[in-house]
């Protein structure tokens, strides 16, 4: 076995320290070391998004991050979204709008949607659909997921998750608008 490396990662607000193999994927660290099994694995190729968590406030696919790369970082998983018994507005909206069936893609979908709403608090339907292009769902046909995210965007109890992203994002530009920088 290759030598292990110490990591110190704040997961859902709690600092965790472990010795890990460098090759340990963040998703396996979360699931197998910390028992946070809400983050799922659905593919091998960074396509399905079921493993999406927030790393320093931004959505990432934790199957394509080594745990060692998260050393010193803050990670938020689906387990860190609710505030005690109070669901995050996205969780509430997914429930209310039947935005899930088997539930397997749901944690990743909610984490991706949270990133989307941080970047674009008032997205159009098309922006929601494109904002979730990194997450696959086989059950819902996406319709109620999109509806849930739209509703959460306009929820009075909107809160942000984790620390804010490093830079204030701007809405995505249409083709050609950014003429002659």
């Amino acid at each position: 076995m290759s030598s292990t490396v110490g990591v110190r990662i704040s997961v859902n607000g709690e600092v965790r320290e472990h010795e890990v193999e460098p090759r340990l994927l963040l998703v396996h660290y979360l699931r197998d070391r910390l028992g946070l099994t809400g983050t799922h694995v659905g593919c091998d190729t960074t396509n399905c998004g079921a493993c999406t968590v927030h790393l320093n406030g931004e959505a990432v696919k934790s199957c394509t991050v080594f745990a060692v790369q998260a050393d010193g970082a803050e990670v938020t998983t689906i387990e860190g979204m609710a505030d005690g018994a109070e669901l995050h507005p996205l969780q509430e909206a997914f429930w209310k709008n039947h935005g899930l069936q088997c539930g397997y893609c749901t944690p990743g979908m909610i984490m991706a949607a949270a990133d989307l709403l941080q970047r674009n608090p008032d997205p159009s339907e098309s922006e929601v659909r494109h904002g979730l292009e990194g997450n696959l769902c086989r059950c819902t046909g996406y319709q109620n997921i999109v509806r849930a995210v739209m509703e959460a965007a306009h929820s009075p109890q909107r809160t942000t998750v984790g620390p804010p992203p490093p830079e204030k994002p701007e809405a995505r530009e249409e083709v050609g608008k950014g003429v002659g920088a």
């Binding site: 099994t37 809400g38 387990e79 669901l87 997914f94 397997y104």
Partner: peptide, 12 residues
């Protein structure tokens, strides 16, 4: 079914 599934408490 949903409360465990939306909070990461599902059991697959």
């Amino acid at each position: 079914e949903d409360p465990p599934l939306i909070t990461g408490k599902g059991r697959y």
